[in-house]
Design a protein around this nucleic acid. Structure first.
Length: 478
RNA sequence: GGCGGCAUAGCCAAGCGGCAAAGGCAGAGGACUGCAAAUCCUUCAUUCCCCGGUUCAAGCCCGGGUGCCGCCUCCA
């Protein structure tokens, strides 16, 4: 197994990754606030860290992945008021929508998807601990965290409290002791959802839920905590403060943050009105193409999503499909006639193993997906050449190795079209067989007519010395 | 004001001191083919924003400059 290195925001360096204990990886990803459909920026986070998790699993680790839902918060309450519905209904609805989109994008379920509202007692207990240890103070119905009591505050984002004060142009509704102090428990205003607590009716503050749930499911110290780079400050900084203040132990060993998604060179934001939802993206592009687009830039760099990128990614999916067709075709033909199976071919096997190793190394080096895609491209070209019908003979182990590598890539990156697509393909087979019959009697007119019919179904055919293959034409989305 | 990032071919994008600068998309030529498509082969940056420096050796390190961008405020 190769050494896995990951860039740790805490140290600003690539470090060798190993779990704190045994081979279990305790992995927490900040999930969505469920007040709207998820957008491509959210998708980058979830696709990325789901893939990292799959990679770790293939590397032999047992990964416990926790991804929360923030299901009580100002934005949800606002939306609920606008729509005249209870906040819980809004949250429930968008959680369902999240899973629809996530499934569509082939994002696997986390081990746990805890919700803030289902962990109120845990949150209250955590705030209480902080209060008992003297890290809090109260203003009106709110409980605040006193950052001055936590000397290493700012260690993640490399900010100093005095600098924060200078730059701060925050408008506060009351006098906090420091602008960086943040709310742990928020007193309820009329009409807002609330829970009973030692401090009266209220709800969790903005950061405390992640600490409470992360520690509940994963223990005091996480191996990996991940999210978008915008969460570094203040969200993750605050999580560290409150968690470590409460437990006296390090909260996170590796902090991983991915870069922004820009749309047509602009930051994606509500105010610019350039949000692209996963929902609308999926109408135009298949999930594999979207994933390839997201993987085409290293995760820590900003990625610019535009039509060009998506179209180029779609072309790449077409290439993978063509390769899969060629592979299945040869597997079939060698299955039919075992004499087409040749003897050993050490150079081919060696080459294939090299691709696998390079692929693995790319991902092990701070999850360098663009490089991994490069390796996969080289593999595709090599394999396509090997699978040329004119080769005449193929080695059984080589074919198996090719299959195995594709399965590995599919399993980790999820960029290989799967069953659904393949089954659809089979429907076309009848027509192709019929056309072959026509060609055998040199009935070109009939053959071309059949080709036209196949083309209308969205497929293009190709004649080879071993018989006819067929390809999808410019398939997109769905 | 404080902190950080990025600048590589028409477009996208790896590269983290060492043979002729990955890969994708687009483009060009060839092979194969009844036609066609796919595929394969070849080709496509004497050069990595600019200027100095370190080194036997630099997109890769150091100094300076220019240009983008982000964070410090809810945000993935």
């Amino acid at each position: 197994m190769v050494e896995i290195r990951l860039f740790n925001t805490l140290t600003q360096k690539k470090e060798t990754f190993l779990p704190q204990e045994g081979n279990t990886v305790r992995f927490y990803v900040c999930g969505p606030t469920v007040y709207d459909l998820i957008h491509i920026g959210n998708a980058r986070v979830f696709v990325l860290f789901d893939a990292l998790r799959r990679f770790l699993e293939r590397a032999g680790f047992r990964v416990v992945l926790v991804q929360n839902f923030t299901d009580v918060d100002d934005k949800i309450i606002r939306k609920a008021q606008e729509e005249q519905k209870p906040p819980s209904e809004i949250a429930e609805y968008y959680i369902e929508q999240y899973f629809l989109d996530a499934d569509r994008l082939k994002i696997r379920r986390a081990s746990f998807h805890p919700r803030a509202t289902e962990h109120i007692p845990d949150i209250i207990a955590l705030v209480k601990t902080l209060e008992e240890k003297g890290f809090t103070y109260r203003i009106d119905g709110d409980v605040l965290f006193d950052v001055s009591r936590f000397p290493s505050y700012g260690k993640l984002s490399r900010k100093r409290l005095d600098e924060l004060q200078e730059g701060a142009r925050v408008e506060v509704r009351y006098e906090k002791r420091s602008p960086a102090d943040f709310v742990l428990w928020k007193g309820a205003k009329p009409g807002e959802p609330f829970w009973e607590s030692p401090w009266g009716k209220g709800r969790p503050g903005w950061h405390i839920e992640c600490s409470a749930m992360a520690m509940k499911y994963l223990g005091a110290t996480l191996d990996i905590h991940a999210g978008g780079i915008d969460l570094v400050f203040p969200h993750h900084e605050n999580e560290i403060a409150q968690s470590e203040a409460a437990t006296g132990r390090p909260f996170v060993r590796f902090f991983l943050h991915n870069g922004y998604v820009n749309i047509n060179e602009e930051k994606m934001s509500k105010s610019l009105g350039n949000i692209i939802t996963v929902r609308e993206l999926c109408e135009k592009y298949e999930p594999e193409a979207i994933r390839i687009a997201l993987f085409s830039t290293h995760y820590r760099n900003p990625i610019n999503v535009d039509e060009k990128l998506l179209v180029s990614s779609r072309q790449y999916v077409e290439r993978i499909k063509n390769f899969l067709r060629a592979l299945s075709f040869i597997e079939e033909k060698t299955g039919e006639k075992p004499e087409r199976l040749g003897e050993d071919n050490p150079e081919v096997l060696e080459r294939l193993k090299e691709f696998e190793m390079l692929f693995w190394q790319s991902l092990a080096d701070d999850f360098n997906t663009p490089q991994a895609l490069g390796v996969f491209s080289d593999f595709l070209r090599f394999s396509n050449g090997y699978l040329l019908p004119s080769q005449g003979k193929w080695n059984e182990e080589a074919l198996r190795t090719i299959r195995r590598f594709v399965a590995l890539v599919a399993d980790i990156l999820g960029i290989v079209p799967e069953k659904e697509w393949w089954e659809k393909e089979q429907q076309i087979e009848r027509l192709v067989v019929e056309r072959e019959r026509a060609r055998r009697v040199k009935d070109w007119q009939r053959a071309d007519a059949l080709r036209e019919e196949i083309r209308r179904a969205g497929y293009i055919i190709e004649d080879t010395p071993l018989g006819t293959r067929w390809y999808g034409e410019e398939e997109n989305g769905n």
